[in-house]
Design a binder for these strands. Structure first.
Lengths: 207, 207
DNA sequence: CTTTATTTATATTGATCGTTACAAAATTCA
DNA sequence: TGAATTTTGTAACGATCAATATAAATAAAG
């Protein structure tokens, strides 16, 4: 409802837009990523996107809707990265490390200091008071768990795990490891150290 | 500097205080816990504590200093709870479950919906832009790791672990599990389910 | 060229932000 | 009792908050 259609139809009528919606969402996401939802003003988003407040509202509705869109988009990208890493035809330990490396690439993708995970770093704080954000967080976490569990199940069938290993239990630890890395990245821990943490976790998980 | 001395000396001169500093800090912590640092106004803290703004400033300095004090106090209580749980003379798996149960008791200590961990839920969001908060988070996490590692080292010496088990690696997974529980509690996951997650993690960690 | 449609830029809205000035209130000391 | 000291309650400060009203600007359609 807020978002205007962007299909290149028979030529639009009025003054052309000066912004690219995709690019603006990306810039807005980066701003939220750094200072959180409550800590980010619409003014700073306007500055980051180069858009005027009216254009922001025309494009995204309001601050809350804009954040939800940023959150949804982050989940898409983040889950796709994890899924793609786990889909590679590699031994289990390499597969897990690929997933953690993919996560680290996202957590350290900013220009300044590490921002960690967008969800852990900004959405979790709002989750208590904001039902929509809470639902998004819960749903995304379930999907991460499911992706890891699927990978462990495959590994189990391939005999990469001990027969008594439980894919669901290992999935819990794998996503816990990912969250731990996300938290520590935002707390200023260096990437090499986080990689080491991932390595240690993988070595335990894979037996 | 901000905090006035509260030692019951030779009787104070002026109008007596209408507030108890300890109780006020507790109420302020609960408010921050629910709506985060940026999302909490000093007005709401004044309401929660029953204090006037000038009294708040006289007692704690300003919003930032008040939050840092709340954070430091939370770390104390939280770390003490973990340490005490791990200090119990129990088998390793029971010891870990005690620590996780202690954490759950804190994460679900609020009156309304679960608030999760104060650090994960509120401090992590501010960590990128706020050096003081970031340092507190990083230091606290290191202490948790150290406590778990010490427990695993003891278990290793007692022969509760396989000889090739690495206490540091297991500690990473234990605190990762704790963080995972903290995050999910704030995302609305029920306590019983979190207990189950902890149980699964313990079963993997302990072999 | 005029009309219609859409976006931009600016300015502003009332509300709320963190913080403080100020005076009344309440206590101890002389 | 009166002076000194500290806290309380209220009111207000300028700044900033999310959100909009308004009008100029820019395009296609008639």
């Amino acid at each position: 409802m807020a978002r205007k259609s962007s299909e290149t139809g028979p030529a639009r009528r009025g003054r052309p837009r000066a912004y690219d919606t995709e690019a603006a969402l990306k810039r807005a996401t980066e701003t939220f990523w750094k200072t959180g939802y409550s800590g980010t003003s619409l003014d700073s988003i306007a500055t980051a996107t180069g858009m005027n407040p009216p254009s922001l509202y025309a494009a995204f509705g309001n601050k809350h809707a804009l954040y939800l869109e940023a959150l949804a988009r982050y989940w898409e990208i983040s889950l796709a990265a994890t899924r793609e890493a786990l889909a590679q035809d590699r031994p289990l330990d390499e597969s897990l490390m690929l997933a953690f490396e993919a996560a680290l690439s996202i957590y350290f993708s900013g220009k300044g200091s590490a921002r960690g995970c967008f969800v852990i770093g900004t959405a979790v704080a709002e989750s208590v008071d904001d039902p929509a954000i809470r639902r998004s967080v819960a749903a995304g976490l379930r999907m991460i768990d499911a992706d890891f569990e699927a990978r462990f199940r495959t590994a189990h069938e391939r005999g990469e795990l001990k027969p008594d290993a439980d894919p669901a239990s290992l999935a819990v630890l794998a996503s816990a490891t990912m969250h731990a890395i996300a938290i520590r990245a935002r707390a200023g821990v260096r990437r090499a150290e986080l990689r080491e943490i991932a390595r240690k976790a993988v070595s335990v998980i894979c037996g």
